[in-house]
């Protein structure tokens, strides 16, 4: 019944800074099935944004380079495609919703013009009815007026919705949303997430939601990929991860996230900070903060184990 839509295998990405290559993504694996919402969860610097942008070759200033791994989509390896070939996929087959509307919306063009340009780029016909229905779908009522406005005339929430509308108008197979809730108000988070879920249901559109917030993941995702130190450390379906985390990092993170709810003397927190790409070593990335660490964890980067249909990168499990 369900088919895998995209399969990323052992993706590695390096960035160049002053002639020095820095490996930012050391191992990124993800499977997205049709109609599924997968969350990528991690802290800042874990590599969650880079790994998802590298699927579409959208690394900043072309400084990032995929050094190995494959991205299988529709019988093609996206990792090896040229820029020109990628243009036919980017936005058309796989859409990307940026964290910040300013990144995606051109400030000098009316909303309607932005729709026209997008459709023209993908050789699709512009029909105002389709655009209006897309806008209505994301919850913008007065579509006609909005099409004649500039981004700065609209609120952050409205711009967020327009970005989503822009992403879904081409009916892509996969929608990647980078922290879709971080730049909007608490009171709107639920609505935006509901919107994503509605779209998912309606078009059976697969989604990758990048977030750092367990609550968001819990609310919308079917499956979760936890990243730490440029590596995927755990994958599995959302409920089993939340109820029974396998990786010590996941466990600690969940404790932190929910310690506000059951506060006693102090908040639970992890000491130390996650490693930055400059500090990456060939050892378990969580070694320095781990409570169940042993010397063998320092020997090499642990491999991915499969436990009860879930995967975890920890020697101790």
């Amino acid at each position: 019944m369900k088919k895998p839509l995209i399969k990323v295998k052992d993706l590695k990405v390096s960035f160049y800074n002053n002639n020095k290559a820095v490996e930012v993504i050391r191992g990124f694996d993800i499977d997205v099935w049709e109609g599924e919402i997968v969350g990528i969860l991690g802290e800042s610097g874990s590599g969650k944004t880079v790994s998802s942008t590298s699927i579409l070759h959208m690394m900043e200033k072309n400084e990032g380079i995929i050094t190995s791994g494959e991205i299988l989509y529709n019988k093609k390896d996206l990792a090896t495609l040229s820029e020109k070939q990628m243009n036919t996929i980017r936005g058309r087959k796989i859409a990307y919703v940026f964290q910040n509307p300013a990144q995606a919306l051109s400030p000098y063009k009316k909303i309607g013009r932005q729709f026209k340009n997008l459709l023209k780029n993908h050789n699709l016909k512009y029909s105002s009815a389709a655009v209006q229905s897309a806008l209505e779908e994301v919850g913008i009522k007065d579509a006609e007026t909005v099409l004649n406005m500039y981004p700065f005339q609209l609120s952050g929430g409205q711009n967020q919705r327009i970005m989503i509308a822009l992403s879904i108008i081409t009916k892509p197979d996969l929608l990647i949303a980078d922290e879709p809730t971080s730049s909007i108000d608490t009171s709107l988070i639920k609505k935006v997430l509901d919107l994503f879920r509605d779209i998912n249901k309606k078009y059976n559109m697969s989604m990758i939601i990048i977030t750092h917030d367990f609550n968001v993941a819990k609310y919308i995702c079917n499956r979760l990929v936890i990243m730490y130190g440029g590596l995927v450390v755990e994958t599995g379906d959302i409920n089993s991860i939340l109820n029974n985390p396998l990786h010590p990092y996941t466990e600690e993170l969940i404790k932190c996230a929910y310690s506000l709810d059951n506060y006693k003397d102090s908040l639970y927190s992890l000491e130390g900070a996650p490693p930055t790409p400059y500090e990456f070593k060939d050892e378990c990335p969580f070694y320095s903060r781990c409570k169940i660490r042993e010397d063998e964890c320092r020997q090499a980067i642990p491999y991915m184990k499969e436990i009860e249909g879930r995967q975890v990168r920890c020697l101790k499990r």
Binding site: E43, S44, H212, D213, F214, E252, L253, C256, A257, S259, S266, L267, Y268, S269, L270, E271, A273, P274
Partner: peptide, 14 residues
Amino acid sequence: LDVSVQGQILNLLI
């Protein structure tokens, strides 16, 4: 701040 660090800072503020 990251979730794992938020607690540290809030603890410190308390």
